[in-house]
Design a protein around this nucleic acid. Sequence first.
DNA 1: AAACTTGTTGCAAATGATTCTCATAATAAG
DNA 2: CTTATTATGAGAATCATTTGCAACAAGTTT
Lengths: 146, 146
Amino acid sequence: MQEHEAQFRNYLKNRGLKLTRSRALILNAAFTMHEHFDAEKLHDLVKHANISLATVYRTLPLLVNAGLIQLAVHSGRRDRFEHILGHPQHVHWLCENCKAVMETDLSSLLPALENEAKALKFDISQISLSIKGLCWKCKADVNESQ
Amino acid sequence: MQEHEAQFRNYLKNRGLKLTRSRALILNAAFTMHEHFDAEKLHDLVKHANISLATVYRTLPLLVNAGLIQLAVHSGRRDRFEHILGHPQHVHWLCENCKAVMETDLSSLLPALENEAKALKFDISQISLSIKGLCWKCKADVNESQ
DNA sequence: AAACTTGTTGCAAATGATTCTCATAATAAG
DNA sequence: CTTATTATGAGAATCATTTGCAACAAGTTT
């Protein structure tokens, strides 16, 4: 069994919830994805097994609480997620022009943050750093058109 | 005239938009607020002047684009904003238990970020760093109840 | 392995924040 | 003050997400 499946099974058992066929399929679909995904994209991957969109929506928060996925970027009207197991936390660079999302490592900032957390007596469970602006490509386009 | 009003007037004029009574009132209401606010909270402050919720929703993106307010935290289903003029960027610490939001200064992390931005040739327009977890108070409660 | 207890699912209807339509009103420019 | 636009209120429309409910499936117990 994969690590993420073991973790999910464990999470569910701890609170008397059941690992159903639907949940297992949805979990695996989420870990199939190599980019950000939303509920509908996930549903596309599992609807062949007759799994409803409602079940996808019901499973998503379980995966978040189990520490397996997280909300990635809040842009536009749909929630978009990404899986995080064995995936170091990172910075999202969101271009406001072409909507592209780049990622960089967060590790260089971690010590400073953990320091601050200690001062605040705050237990960190999730860090989300996103930066909006113009990517180099769009910046070039803007300059050209002037 | 306040600085934020001047900046808004300027933004609007640059694109042939009009500074109306409604927009001025909404802008001032936003700068009245000392905490995060959503569209409805803003509407509460201006509806006495017969301003509709639709107008509030139409004005919000103008204020964002004018660099006067920004999306603060995406938690729950409503967009929450905060004004940013003369307000240094900060970190949001969001307690997952009591939903309280604390803020700390972002300046200690800025140099590292600006460095990375330079490497990526990325023009930063807005930084949003939010950290979820447990605040000291809730952490204490959790320990007590064990 | 049959019976049970409890959580789960699909479906469809409900919700709720945000956006849009359209007829009327207000603004800036000339 | 006239004109050309843009803005507004009211309410309908959207659309992602939730929910109620009756049928089902998982894990447990006998």
